[in-house]
Simulated assay, not measured.
Amino acid sequence: MNSGTVLVIAVPSAVVGAASFGMASAIQHRVTKQVPEGATLSPRMLWDLVRKPIWVLSIGTVVVGLSLQVVALAFGPLVLVQPVLVTSVLFGAAFSAWLAQRRMDRVLALGALSCAGGLAAFLVLAQPSGHGSEFTGAPVLPLALVLGLLVVLSLGAARWLPGEFGVIGLAVATGVLYGVTAGLMRVVAGQFRTGGLVEPFGHWTLYAVCVIGPMGFLLSQRTFQRGRLISPSLAVITTVDPLASAAIGVSWLGESIESSPAILAGEAVAAALMIGGIVVLTRRSEQLGRELSQQEEPGSWG
């Protein structure tokens, strides 16, 4: 495929897809605050949200984003498309500021840019290769235990840590569940291609997706509800999701990533950028949250 086709179709599709994801996240972040809080994994929240037309519209926006992602991947390489898609962090922050009728905070923008840039650099350097859709026979349990423990610890942190730090815990758990869902969906898709429509129903992976996927989506809505600002939670979800998916691809599906000393050094720098961006977003969100709370207190205008 020539470079002109990639530039004309793949890149615009990826950019608009990222914008669609960012817009949907901004809408959901706003609407989730209009429904009662409840237990972290209580499905009652979704029943409350589905009665909000603007929230239902945001789900349509997600479908548009996913469709454009498929188009982008059909006409462009993963190493180009996936880094473009992570700009949804910037779009989400911008749309959230627009919906709230306020200016985009420069520190939040810098943190989001650092996080998105670090992830994009990591993906470009790692150059994930292979399209594994079958388990290679390698042990599934070790990585499954690590990811499961990470979710449990993250949910524990969300329960006990205050403010935005607790929100980060929810976001990490969400990103892990999203990444696991994406990884297992590749297996389900492979079963469908080789055995037809009925084949996936004979394997545990489809049923795991049907449980883990909705759990991840519910956690994402709870994360948006608890977070005062969208940037930290969206940045963490967008970062953890592809990393967890890549870990599954390498460990379970026989995919490979670049791992030379120079590449590993570059990946370490990219990881530092991601972590630094998340720290900046979290601390700035805590500060802005306190300022907004003071403004909302009775008599604070005097």
Rank of each mutant, 00 (worst) to 15 (best):
A272C: 09
E297I: 10
S13K: 12
V11S: 06
V280N: 04
V209W: 06
A116Q: 01
I237H: 05
V16D: 09
M274I: 13
L66P: 12
S20W: 05
Y178D: 05
W55T: 02
I278A: 09
L119K: 05
V240I: 13
T194A: 07
V151P: 07
V107Q: 07
R283E: 12
V107D: 03
R284G: 04
G60V: 02
G175Y: 06
G183C: 01
V8N: 09
P242Q: 11
A270F: 08
L234V: 12
S96D: 10
Q221E: 04
A268N: 06
D105H: 01
G111Q: 00
L170C: 12
S293T: 14
L145K: 04
W55I: 00
T223C: 08
G65D: 00
V8S: 09
A94E: 03
V172Y: 01
P12M: 12
S259Y: 10
M23K: 14
M45A: 08
A182T: 15
P142S: 00
T282A: 13
V180D: 03
M274L: 09
A171E: 03
G137H: 13
V236G: 08
R30A: 11
G216M: 08
P232A: 04
A121T: 11
S231W: 06
A121R: 11
V8H: 11
D48S: 15
V107K: 09
L243H: 08
A270W: 04
A74L: 10
P53I: 03
Q287C: 14
V63K: 12
R102D: 00
A171Y: 02
L143F: 09
V31D: 03
P128E: 00
I248D: 07
V152E: 05
L113H: 06
V64M: 07
D48N: 14
V50N: 13
G118A: 00
V11D: 07
L110G: 04
G4F: 14
F75I: 07
M23L: 15
Q34H: 13
L155M: 12
E199W: 11
A39L: 15
A126E: 00
V198R: 13
I257D: 00
Q34W: 09
A93E: 10
E134H: 14
V188E: 00
L155D: 01
L218Q: 05
I59S: 05
H29W: 15
W252C: 00
F165K: 15
A116S: 05
W98V: 13
R103H: 07
F201K: 01
T223P: 02
M45G: 08
L206E: 00
P200N: 02
M185F: 03
S58P: 03
V236H: 05
G227N: 00
A182L: 14
K33T: 09
S58F: 02
V209Y: 07
L113E: 01
Q294F: 14
L253Q: 01
S260I: 12
